[in-house]
Design a protein around this nucleic acid. Structure first.
Lengths: 145, 145
DNA sequence: CTGATTGCAAAACGTTTGCACGTTG
DNA sequence: CAACGTGCAAACGTTTTGCAATCAG
């Protein structure tokens, strides 16, 4: 589930119709290595479709999420989406606060965590935030601002 | 910063006036071991003050957060608040999905995490979700529903 | 051709703001 | 009594919904 075609196949396989908007969406997520806010998705798609409406973006984001093509994460500044990780083994992420790019962390802290007998663990969240190589360089290149 | 009086002292110390609404807020957070959504806060305070408005709740939550009395966390289902942890050393939490009760985890996964040289870490999040002792019992007592 | 998908407009939702009135210190 | 805090109403940004027109298969 990496290329545009794979994403589109996944959608047709579920009986969905492939509109230009959905092709554009598939292309965007296939090309984006990190998280995207709905507004960013709207702005990107709006470049190709001047008559685009916000609700179409939301509807398709929801459809693609239910389909398992993309995944949703809640950040401090709102909801964001990214292509669902193709890796099938459990892992976590380092996330760049500037560009949204994500990098996998194979280490899972739950293995090391001592849980009391009377607490039943359902899920956990481990995320590392910072700045990636490219964004550190941009910052120092741009100087203070 | 545990009892109602400590919270109120903290507020007066910052030049804030103590209204009945704020006393009620202080009491609520002093008595609640876990997270509260703004709506829950509103409903609790509404019991004592029929004329209460939502914006007063939000304003006071924000004031208390800026003051460091309470802290804010973003969950999947929205923003929630709890009394700021009195522990000064870094730690994480196990959070009950039913009652919102939190329990400290002293282990910090960042110590074990291998970070690439070219990634500058700014912050991290580690949270364990599940059901606490009391809520497991309630569940089995209540049966299927 | 038929139902899925879209755009529009309007509603819903949580949160914030401006303002006049009431209250605290 | 002066500044702060409140309630009200209205604005706000984001997300959802109902509907008629359009489009993909």
């Amino acid at each position: 589930m990496h290329t545009i075609d794979e994403i589109i196949q996944r959608m047709t396989g579920q009986g969905l119709r492939i509109t230009d908007q959905r092709k554009s969406l598939a292309k965007l997520f296939a090309e984006t290595p990190g998280y995207l806010a709905p507004k960013e998705v709207y702005e990107y798609m709006g470049k190709s479709y001047s008559g685009l409406s916000f609700d179409t973006v939301y509807r398709n984001l929801r459809v693609m999420e239910e389909l398992g093509v993309i995944e949703q994460v809640i950040f401090e500044d709102g909801v964001k989406f990214k292509l669902h990780c193709r890796e099938n083994d459990h892992h976590h992420h380092m996330i760049c606060l500037q560009c949204g790019h994500t990098y996998p962390i194979t280490f899972c802290p739950m293995e090391q965590t001592v849980v009391p007998d009377d607490f039943r663990v359902v899920k956990h969240k481990f995320e590392v935030f910072g700045y990636c190589k490219d964004c550190i360089q941009e910052e120092s290149a741009a100087g203070a601002n």
